[in-house]
Every structure is written in structure tokens, then in C-alpha cells.
């Protein structure tokens, strides 16, 4: 039967290869699990930067692991592709959105230091809604839409759930246990999701055999 060549479908399929290995899921899961241990480990870090140092350490670990795994595990299995103009523009959009989000978040966090919002106290349901609807759901939704990455919607909701659990837990509980319970459980769920997808990816895409390399097909 004669069928039209659906270039849109092919593009979607290629875009999906960017996240089918579960590395992004594992990274978010690792950062969230690390955050759960934050109140315990940051005690050992020097003042006054301990609140920034712990997330920075987690981010550095994630970037190094992503770099090594991409070069030595994913690329030999997935192969190399240089995106076309449409795929490049999707990548640029994501970078712009992430930059806007980072600048916006930094501005909001720096406002009290300048003295603009020093008298404003946001807590309870309002805090949960602002964090979720302004800082978490929009970037995850946009990335999910642009990268054709439906799992990202679920990750966004799970990340938000961590905040909800942390905020709604009884205030009499020690904050270290609260962090372990809220962010730890959610982090392990996301991390496990990523590990399962990564194992499936390794099974689906084994390394090319030596005879294929020696035959010049590689």
C-alpha cells in the first residue's frame, strides 16, 4: 500500500532518542534523593555557604556522571546524530526556557536580600501552590512538550509532591526526618524509574559486535 512519508513522525522518533535512556530521570531522582540527605550532610559543610554547597555538589556529581555515561555507554549504543534545523530550534527553545526559569528563580530568591519582599511571608497552601505552579510544573511541562517526553509530566508532578508532603507533614517532626521522608521517597521513586528505563535501554541497544566493526559497518 502506498503511504506518505511522515517526516513529523520521524522527527518525533529522533527527538525521543534524547531521553529514552532514562539518564534525565535518574539525574532528577539522584538530586532529589540527595536533597533528602541535605539537612544531615550540610552540617559538615563550612558556613556561610553550606545551603548552596550541598546542591552544588549534587549538581556537579550529576554533570560528571551524565558526561561519562553519555560518552562511554550511550553514544556507542545509540550512535551519533547531528540534528537538522528543526531539531536544533527545539533544543534552542529548551535552553532559552531553562535560562528564563533560572533567572526568574534567582530573582525571586534574591528579592528578600534587596529588601523588596522582606516583610512578605509565604507558607502553607500558598507556598505549595506558588512553588508548584510557578517553579516546578511550567518548566517540566514545556520540556515534556518540546521533547515529546510524557514521563517528564509525571516527574514534574512527583517533584511537586515532594514539596507537598514536606510542607504538610506535622511540624513537630524533626526537619531532618521530614526531608528524608518527603524528598527521599519521591527521589527513590524517580531514580528507580530511571534505572528501570536505563536497564531496558541497555538490553534493547547492545554494543555493536566486533565483526561489524571489523567489516567497516560501524
Amino acid at each position: 500500500m502506498v503511504e506518505d512519508i511522515d517526516l513529523e513522525a520521524i522527527q518525533k522518533k529522533i527527538i525521543k532518542t534524547a531521553h529514552q535512556h532514562g539518564l534525565f530521570d535518574m539525574s532528577i531522582g539522584f538530586i532529589y534523593t540527595g536533597m533528602a540527605f541535605g539537612p544531615i550532610f550540610r552540617e559538615a559543610l563550612p558556613e556561610p555557604y553550606r545551603y548552596f554547597l550541598w546542591p552544588l555538589i549534587l549538581l556537579c556529581v550529576v554533570f560528571v556522571v551524565i558526561f561519562i555515561v553519555t560518552i562511554y555507554v550511550i553514544r556507542p549504543r545509540m550512535g551519533f546524530v547531528k540534528p537538522g534545523p528543526k531539531l536544533k530550534s527545539a533544543g534552542k527553545k529548551i535552553i532559552i526556557i531553562i535560562l528564563i526559569q533560572v533567572i526568574f528563580t534567582l530573582t525571586i530568591f534574591l528579592l528578600p536580600f534587596i529588601g523588596i519582599t522582606s516583610g512578605v511571608k509565604v507558607e502553607g497552601i500558598l507556598f505549595i501552590l506558588i512553588i508548584g505552579l510557578v517553579f516546578i510544573i511550567p518548566p517540566f511541562t514545556i520540556i515534556a512538550y518540546l521533547l515529546k517526553y510524557p514521563r517528564c509530566y509525571a516527574i514534574g508532578v512527583l517533584v511537586w509532591m515532594g514539596i507537598i508532603i514536606n510542607e504538610t507533614l506535622n511540624r513537630s517532626i524533626d526537619y531532618r526526618i521530614k526531608w528524608l521522608f518527603s524528598f527521599g521517597i519521591i527521589g527513590i521513586i524517580i531514580l528507580s524509574m530511571g534505572i528501570i528505563i536505563f536497564v531496558r535501554f541497555l538490553k534493547k541497544y547492545p554494543l555493536p559486535k566486533k565483526e561489524d566493526i571489523s567489516n567497516g559497518r560501524y
Binding site: 522518533k13 529522533i14 550512535g79 537538522g84 559497518r217
Partner: peptide
């Protein structure tokens, strides 16, 4: 050709995974 049309360039491993052809067939 459709795969190569939407990208700038790709290697054999990537095309093999995308098209699900065998090495011999793709070659």
C-alpha cells in the same frame, strides 16, 4: 533517506537503531 533528510548527519549505528534494519541490509 527520510531519516537523513531531517538530520544534518548521522552514523551507521544511529541509522541501524532507527530503521531497525540489519547491518547487511542497511549497508
Amino acid at each position: 533517506m527520510a531519516y537523513l533528510y531531517v538530520v544534518e548527519s548521522a552514523d551507521m549505528v544511529f541509522l541501524k537503531n532507527q530503521t531497525e534494519l540489519t547491518w547487511g541490509n542497511l549497508s
